[in-house]
Design a protein around this nucleic acid. Structure first.
Length: 433
RNA sequence: GGGGAGAUACUCAAGCGGCCAACGAGGACAGACUGUAAAUCUGUUGGUUUUCACCUUCGCAGGUUCGAAUCCUGCUCUCCCCA
């Protein structure tokens, strides 16, 4: 069987290749193989930090191979010491199963689980084969083959044992790499899985797996890692002030999701569009050229945000997010705002802090100090309200106002809302009951 | 156990009897500029107040004084040096 495309080459030009075990590329050229990526089921949704691994699996499947998503039910109960400075919280089984189901439905947007193709994706959970593994069996059948010296040499372990770490490391955490390593061996046996992929911080854990395969079964496992995703400004990828950027619409609204990508810096956008979209090389090069001609158009960011939002959510969600963005950041005027119906308005301003007013409050016109502070709590004090008004920072329904302005029933959008704004980005909604 | 230094607003850090809601720097917020960016410039950064003024705040509790972040007493905590 001829491979559709060269997987390794694909990852390489996309900047998704960090480290690769010698011989991996040749091995994959031989024909269809299986590879897996581990995902911690710590929540019932993926966040965008998981996306790199998922995209690796996706490319793998597109290249004609079989991707395996491994839900780390067992390993999630232990906690990977890599990059962690302290022990992890443990999960109970009910939560674990719930999370697994949720993750699978999200993964299905990226991977083909259902088709009859012989490279259909598979989802496995290492809890299923680890739960009945007795401690004695484990240390006899697995632990026997790996020396503590070997385990101690791993970066993840060394760091925790070094001077800087005052946390100490439990035996549980220490065993983590063995459990993860055994996963690889298990999949090697049960699914002929010969490759494990992951972030570059996983290299140590992955090689423990290949080592087990070599020592116990005399087989050959391969390893491939991608660079950890960084941001040009040094802040953590996938985080906002309000926490992780989740794929689940209930946790991170499609609008916020879209905005996260839209706000990436120029340098990062070029990197991300290669990693997180399936756009081809030529198309990306054209986009990059376009972007450098007219960076203010943000063509890269826009395309990036569109592609990912559509992939993760839907075309309709994307359209709503774009509409919302247009209203919030575009040239939208009071007229455009007032044209919104109630449902759309709520959608656009979902998550924006709000206060309720009664209709009587507006009867004689509500003065700005009351609207900003005393009656609503938008600003901390009347003094602050005065200052901001004096600085020309306050808008009502997108129009700058001064202290003399009074809000009346005429300002209501779809007879219900008034949009207050401090500066460009701080919104507050008044709801009239 | 002995000796010394210190505790000031989000952070660092001045002030050492009235001119102190408290210098300055960072941060944060806003305005101009801009690409929903970066840089830059400007303003704001305890509360009530148009202003004046008043109230609360300089580790905690008392005291001296017309008046205290500043002086005194006690307490709590931190750091350093010597045992």
């Amino acid at each position: 069987m001829r491979m559709v495309s060269n997987f390794v080459e694909e990852l390489q030009w996309r900047g998704m290749l960090h480290d690769i075990m010698p011989g991996t590329e040749e091995h994959l050229q031989e024909g269809m193989h299986s590879a897996y990526v581990g995902i911690d089921p710590t929540a019932d949704s993926l966040h965008i930090g998981h996306l790199v691994g998922v995209m690796m699996l996706r490319h793998f499947q597109r290249a004609g191979h079989r991707p395996i998503a491994l839900v780390g039910g067992a390993t999630g109960m232990i906690g990977d010491p890599s990059g962690k400075s302290a022990e992890r919280n443990l999960l109970d089984e009910t939560t674990l199963r719930h999370n697994q189901e949720a993750l699978k439905s999200q993964l299905a947007r990226f991977l083909d689980f259902d088709s009859n193709a012989d490279n259909a994706a598979i989802l496995v959970n290492n809890y299923d084969w680890m739960k009945s593994f007795s401690f004695l069996d484990f240390i006899r059948d697995v632990g026997k083959h790996i020396t503590v010296n070997y385990m101690m040499a791993k970066d993840s372990v060394r760091k925790r044992l070094s001077e800087e770490s005052n946390e100490g490391m439990s035996f549980t955490e220490f065993s983590y790499q063995l459990v993860q390593g055994y996963d690889f061996l298990h999949l090697y046996r049960s699914h002929q899985c010969t490759l494990q992929m992951g972030g570059s911080d996983q290299w140590g854990n992955i090689t423990t797996g290949t080592e087990l395969i070599r020592r116990i079964d005399g087989g050959k496992g391969f390893a491939l890692t991608c660079p950890l995703i960084t941001k040009a400004d040094g802040t953590k990828f996938g985080k906002t002030e309000s926490g992780n950027v989740w794929l689940d619409a209930g946790r991170t609204s499609p609008y916020k999701f879209y905005q996260y990508w839209m706000n990436t810096s120029d340098a990062d956008a070029e990197k991300y569009i290669k990693i997180f979209t399936l756009l081809g090389r030529d198309e990306i090069e054209t986009l990059v050229a376009e972007h450098s001609q007219a960076p203010h158009q943000r063509a890269l960011q826009r395309r990036l945000a569109r592609e990912i939002t559509t992939m993760v959510h839907s075309r309709e969600d994307l359209e709503r997010a774009e509409l919302a963005s247009e209203i919030l950041f575009g040239k939208a005027t009071a007229e455009a705002l007032k044209a919104l119906d109630q449902a759309t308005f709520m959608e656009v301003f979902e998550g924006v802090p709000q206060a309720r007013l009664s209709r009587e409050d507006l009867a004689d016109g509500l003065d700005m100090i009351a609207a900003l502070s005393a009656r609503t709590g938008f600003l901390k004090s009347n003094g602050e309200a005065r200052r901001e008004l004096g600085q020309n920072a306050i808008s009502v329904n997108k129009n700058k106002v001064d202290e003399a302005y009074r809000i009346t029933a005429d300002d209501l959008i779809s007879d219900r809302f008034v949009l207050l704004q401090r500066g460009k980005k701080n919104y507050f909604v008044l709801m009239v009951d």
